[in-house]
Structures are given as C-alpha cells and as structure tokens.
Design a protein around this nucleic acid. Structure first.
Length: 210
DNA sequence: GTGACGATAATCT
DNA sequence: GATTATCGTCACA
C-alpha cells in the first residue's frame, strides 16, 4: 500500500474475475498477502490482509462440501469470483471465494486476516472475547479464524453468491507474496483422511488461526 | 500453557 | 437422526 492515507484506496482496485478462474489451490496460494475489504452500512470500510487460506475441491475431495453437488454446494460449481458463505455449528459463518478452472469445481476458504482497518468496529462486533483485563484490545483475536473474521467483517449468509469484484465485499492487492514466506500444511478441522496438504499460511504471521 | 466440553441449527442421508 | 471447513469458557497444570 502506498497511495495516500486511506488503506482501501491504497490497496488498489478489486481483483478481476480472471484472478479466480484458475486452479483452486493456486488461487488459495495467491490470495495470501491480498486485502479483503467490507464496506459497511455506516459507510466505513473494515478489512485486513489475508494470511491463511485453504483449498476445497470438487468430486474426489472427501473434505469438501462440493464432493457432491447439493443445493448448498452448487455455488462451488458456478462462476469463479463469487462468495460462498455457509452457516455451521449452529452459530458460525465461514467465507469462501469460488475459484476453479473452466468447468471445474472448488473454492478457497479464508481462514485468517491481519486486521488493518476499523479495528474498533471489529472489536464491537466480536464482543467481549477480544478484550482482556482493563478493556485492553487483543487484536490477535479479531480475525484469526474463519468464523472470527466473518463476525469481525459482518459477513453473513446475506452475502452468499455476491460478486467479489466490486463493493460491498471485495479483494484487492497487486502483489503475490514470495514462496519463501509461504508454508503449506494439512487442512484443519476435518475428519482424518480429508486433511489434504491444502492449507496455505504466511509462515511468520502472528494472526494465524493456530 | 493445554485439553475437554457445550452451544445451536442448517444441511444432508 | 447424524454430522458439522468453530469458538469461548472453564478446569487443571
């Protein structure tokens, strides 16, 4: 970021749909270091730098919702560059970007952000869990997990299917981080056997989910 | 610091 | 009826 003092403007225009029309794991890898932004009802923008992602594939990937085509997973069979937001465990939303080659299936789960803009708003939406003794803000707890970041950015199922190449929810950033700062690990939270090495992290980030 | 557990409802078999 | 791409809290060390 370099232009002016507004982090949103300084991070450049939204990534085009073509960015997402590539192999799912390549997109998940290349999302590291980019910026996720959310324009809120009050006009403010909340956002952060993507530091952790996972790739979920289509039929043949037992850990993926899209291992079968169902009403919920159909969006992963559709147009790249749209949001896939689902509700789980009776209380949490998770945010994915539909990403795959032509006629492919898949999406990249955004698992953690380094919070950059509207930290106070994030803290309000996240609730008391992000405050320590004396009301001190624990910024590591704002966006370090897939359900935490959706709460911090006010992402709900109302945004399922939205186009990510324009507000109110978009990703920007023109730089691809170098391989030397990236680590690949097994995916998290799945039944063993489905935990493919398809989790991508910025190795030394303090804002990872674990 | 670590590990167990319950919350809570959409989704699918 | 079972499962779940999670998180916060509470023990205990």
């Amino acid at each position: 970021m370099s232009r002016g003092s507004d982090p949103v403007a300084g991070s450049g225009p939204p990534l085009p749909a073509s960015f997402y029309a590539r192999a799912t794991d390549a997109v998940a890898r290349d999302l590291l270091g980019r910026f996720l932004w959310r324009r809120l009802e009050n006009g403010r923008a909340a956002g952060g730098r993507i530091v952790e992602t996972e790739a979920y594939f289509g039929p043949g990937d037992p850990g993926s919702h899209a291992r079968r085509r169902t009403p919920r997973s159909a969006i992963m069979y559709g147009e790249p560059g749209r949001a896939y937001v689902y509700f789980t465990y009776g209380m949490h939303y998770c945010f994915n970007v539909v990403a795959h080659e032509p006629d492919g299936v898949g999406a990249a789960l955004i698992r953690a952000l380094e919070p950059l803009a509207d930290l106070e708003g994030m803290a309000e939406r996240r609730g008391k869990a992000v405050r320590g003794a004396g009301g001190q803000l624990k910024d590591k707890l704002l966006c370090s997990g897939p359900a935490r970041l959706t709460q911090a950015l006010a992402i709900t199922r109302a945004l399922n299917g939205t186009d990510l190449t324009a507000p109110p929810l978009w990703i920007s950033g023109s730089e691809t981080v170098p391989d030397r700062v990236v680590t690949v690990t097994p995916r998290i939270g799945l039944r063993t056997g489905a935990d493919l090495p398809a989790r991508f992290i910025i190795t030394d980030s303090p804002f990872l989910s674990r």
